[in-house]
Design a protein around this nucleic acid. Structure first.
Lengths: 138, 138
DNA sequence: GTTATATGCTTTCGATGAAGACGCAATATG
DNA sequence: CATATTGCGTCTTCATCGAAAGCATATAAC
């Protein structure tokens, strides 16, 4: 299960993408509309800014807005940024790899299965962007 | 990422399946061979016993052994038992469903993507058993 | 029935994550 | 320049997780 932080990050990005008209959007507005604790959201948006996904403007008329285009921000990137590894085991993570103790990975049935899960997950998350999840209307 | 508890559970089950000859196996032996904190492992094996996956015998010659056949224990079952939900969001979980606040799930792009991830993951975890990950030899 | 051997149960401690309180710093507007 | 607005930074609190310790209970062997 994703941490609250990651869930909030996705929801905030969706909201920002949906209201994106060049104008900065208040943290407080996002927090209220998407039911996210204000101070927690401040932290999350700050991380997204430091990573170059968002940018912000201070003072009156300030707020947050996209630095990259929503069509260019893959969900996998956000996951790795806020949540950390996408894989279920450290020893099968591409970006956060850690070796297993007492387990020869080439002969480990568990890590082989978890590699399958990782690949299936990445196939989806690397090909969906923030724009994809923001503009769906079924 | 899976919690340590779940990772340990899988490793312990693999070890038990590999050494399965009807004889009980000591918690201490599993803990030592698989590098798992002893007292932590006791808790994990107890949960697996209460769920009917394992059984145990006390006293000399005691230890843990399978109650169900390893070929009948699906990985998804262990995940749900120890880790909880397999889905990445509460609102797309089959067994631990919780409704989203401020989000109409039928029109939510995020939950649609996370459903895809869930289905892809389940397709793998529901079709692999403890026996599958224990007896692989590539 | 006593003893050694194992599991079973409860409590505790530290680390991490979620969330709130308060004050500081930057900026648009008059 | 003054002030209101808004993002930024730090510190505290509360819950959960990982891990360990201690005692209780069951049982096989003698």
């Amino acid at each position: 299960m994703l941490s609250m932080k990651t869930q909030y990050a996705f929801k905030a990005l969706m909201y920002l993408a949906q209201k994106d008209n060049g104008e900065p959007i208040l943290i407080a507005e996002i927090a209220e509309k998407k039911n996210i604790p204000l101070k927690f959201l401040e932290n999350i948006l700050l991380e997204l800014k430091k990573a170059g996904v968002l940018d912000s403007k201070k003072g009156k008329g300030g707020g947050y807005f996209f630095n990259q285009r929503p069509t260019d921000v893959r969900l996998a990137k956000i996951m790795r940024l806020i949540e950390g590894p996408i894989a279920l085991l450290p020893c099968v993570s591409l970006n956060f790899y850690q070796k297993c103790k007492n387990c020869d990975e080439r002969h480990c049935g568990l890590s082989n299965v978890m590699k399958e899960v990782r690949d299936a997950t990445l196939l989806i998350l690397e090909n969906k962007t923030v724009a994809d999840i923001a503009f769906i209307n079924i």
